[in-house]
Design a binder for these strands. Structure first.
Lengths: 191, 191
DNA sequence: GTCTATACGCTGATAGAC
DNA sequence: GTCTATCAGCGTATAGAC
């Protein structure tokens, strides 16, 4: 039972929010400090370099996804429904804060990221794509999906559509995000 | 016949490249100045504020697209082929420099952009979506397309897929971009 | 752990000489 | 048009007191 306020976690929460909102080059330690009513230097105590903070955020997001995936694996639902749950993650981003997903934010900033963050980004994206691929492949074997081409390609397609939609909706809202997910489903699930 | 070197155009060309590569907050006047071997202050002569430069880039890209669209309209090709030509624009980004498209770059930075740039971004994205919608709608009327839902939703779906794919490929390359366009086609063109 | 103080390069931007 | 000089503010980051 933790009663102590976890400053480190708070820093990460706020920084992750800022990252999704403004991109890696669009926020500073000052922004975080002000939000927490602490001083700039205090953040350096937890994360000596901004790179450390960035890496920690990506790594945590990866673990969060893996935990989510484990929860989904336990559920007794069909593969199409699992893909649907995946789409719901993105829907949350759109509806709550018009935020971009972490992958998309990191990808557009990719060439400006320090090497360690680039590495973590690749791992993060791979983790998600591999999960999608696994679900698609298994679902196809059980005739719950029907699509041409490899599961890998299909995974890329799904991820692309969701990620792009989340971003576009930001500037053209309100536009039905559900319309995108419906098309993704129809593309894999015309069985 | 212009023989004079157009510094203003050169600045815009380099800035646009930097914008696609690094995002709006990821490049500075210094970067442009160094690339052109001129001084920081000289750029301010052409574009007093960075906002002016940003707006000019978006506006030019919009006009470039409109010109492209006019060229496509003149071509005696079917609607599916027109969508295919549209996909090829994105393919160029991926294959040449692993660059992100302008819309995607601006969208992820959206909340950090000055108001004038936000406005131009909306206009730019709308222009493209409206073109797509028009082509999809006309093609559907001629039975060259077959899709459910509105042309508007379908336009969003296509744009999302392409934009997302271009970004993801950046970190997971080499991944077949064509696989994404093939799926987009199959989704609208199963006639 | 959190603070104050401080370093220093980079940022967008301006004034004025040539 | 392009330059030099200069600016104030912000960026990440460190040292050391409390």
């Amino acid at each position: 039972m933790k009663t102590k306020i976890d400053t480190k976690k708070q820093i990460m929460d706020i920084a992750e929010n800022l990252l999704l909102d403004r991109g890696y080059n669009g926020f500073s330690y000052k922004d975080i400090a002000q939000a927490l009513s602490i001083k700039n230097a205090s953040i350096h105590y937890y994360f000596p370099q901004k790179t450390d903070l960035g890496v920690a955020i990506i790594d945590r997001a990866k673990k969060r996804f893996e935990k989510w995936a484990a929860g989904i694996a336990d559920k007794d639902i069909g593969y199409p429904e699992k893909i649907n749950e995946f789409c719901l993650i993105f829907k949350k981003y759109v509806e709550q804060e018009q935020q971009v997903c972490l992958g998309g934010a990191l990808e557009t900033d990719f060439k400006t990221l320090p090497a360690e963050m680039q590495k973590e980004t690749r791992i993060f994206i791979s983790t998600i794509l591999q999960w999608l691929e696994k679900i698609l492949s298994a679902g196809k074997d059980k005739n719950e999906f029907k699509f041409s081409g490899s599961a890998r390609e299909q995974a890329l397609f799904i991820m692309s559509g969701l990620q792009g939609a989340i971003q576009i909706v930001r500037v053209t809202a309100p536009l039905s995000f559900d319309a995108v997910t419906a098309r993704i489903r129809s593309n894999i699930c015309n069985v």
